[in-house]
Amino acid sequence: MENFEPVIVAFCCHYCAYTAADMAGSQRLPYPSNVKIIRVPCSGQVDSLHIVKAFEKGADGVYVAGCLDGDCHFKNGNVKAAKRIAYVQKYLEEIGLESERLEMVNISAGMGHRFAEVASTITEKIRKLGPSPIKASASL
């Protein structure tokens, strides 16, 4: 457990968070390598199914990163995403997973710092929560 390195999937909107991740890169802002980014055209495209599948396959944490409030390139994708995340969080609780393993964050394209910061905080949080009970059992 001490050497537990969580695997975290970050669904990032092309127009904001994905760009912010690139920005964190060009500014060489380190964050934990546990975070693996999957690019999507809009946080509103991230299906509840994508999220639960990630957990089913063994993700220790998942987050969806969309644009700041009012900044969505497609009007309201980030708002829809936030609602969806709240819904899936409840489902995770039903399954017996801590809902804290899933999170919605808002990051604008320019916020390289914030991207790195969010990646670090979420990784730390998941590290404290420990390995996903699903992965732990699956590998038994």
């Binding site: 695997v7 999937v9 693996k36 999957i38 999507v40 055209p41 495209q45 299906d47 199914l49 994508h50 599948k53 990630a54 396959k57 063994g58 993700a59 992965k135 699956a138 590998s139």
Partner: peptide, 18 residues
């Protein structure tokens, strides 16, 4: 950005880990 492409990424990531 079809579902199977997104899920393929997810599955690949964890296949490797497990």
């Amino acid at each position: 950005f079809e579902d199977d492409r997104i899920l393929a990424k997810v599955e690949q990531l964890f296949e490797r880990i497990t």
